[in-house]
């Protein structure tokens, strides 16, 4: 133990504000709550689940924030908000993408799909959703929308993957419940019924 640290010392509040800022400033800037002065284009159109949506977007706002907090699409989850877990996975032009780690402004010409857009107009579930139900893939369900979107992305690119290919394709989605085996069962089932 460093003896200097064991002595009583009084530290002024700079520490408090510094610590509060380190972990969270970026997060809340990303939530689109900044109000920058000067000219910045804010009202943009993005294509979400086949619909053109007009939305007021801050320059540094992430797609996950726009979807959840501006468009009410709360199926897209935030587990880490820093590209570690995959809970926020959506499809951007068919490619599974961490919505917490892309800026909405970069999505202007992209086709975005979220878990809310998968059901057929008659209410039929997507094969991945049905496969996940058949195999009871989810446990707590918090990672599930991200797992669903990664699996949809995989099956579009490779409709009949091997289990190993599925595992590799899904590897960007953490499941703290450890339901990996059941998700892979679900993906294989989806490929079967797809």
């Amino acid at each position: 133990m460093n003896p200097k640290l064991t002595r009583r010392r009084f530290i002024k509040g700079v520490i408090a504000s510094g610590a509060a800022a380190t972990t969270t400033t970026m997060w809340y800037a990303a939530n689109g709550q900044d109000r920058p002065t000067g000219f910045v284009e804010r009202l943009i159109r993005i294509n979400v689940n086949g619909q053109e949506r007009s939305v007021d977007v801050a320059p540094q706002e992430t797609l996950a924030s726009t979807l959840r907090y501006k468009l009410g699409l709360t199926g897209t989850k935030l587990g880490c908000n820093r590209g570690e877990c995959g809970a926020c996975t959506v499809l951007v032009d068919d490619t599974p993408t961490y919505a917490c780690s892309v800026l909405t402004h970069s999505m202007k010409f992209a086709r975005i799909e979220t878990v809310e857009g998968l059901e057929a107009p008659n209410g039929d579930l997507h094969a991945v959703q049905q496969g996940f139900i058949d195999q009871l893939s989810p446990q707590c369900g918090y990672c599930t929308p991200g797992q669903v979107m990664s699996a949809v992305g995989l099956l579009r690119a490779n409709p009949n993957p091997t289990r190993e290919e599925a595992r590799q394709a899904m590897a960007g989605n953490i499941c703290r419940c450890g339901s990996y085996d059941s998700y892979l069962d679900g993906v294989m089932r989806a490929a079967e019924i797809g």
Partner: peptide, 8 residues
Amino acid sequence: DVAGKVTG
């Protein structure tokens, strides 16, 4: 609840 989980 499982349908709610796979549909978000």
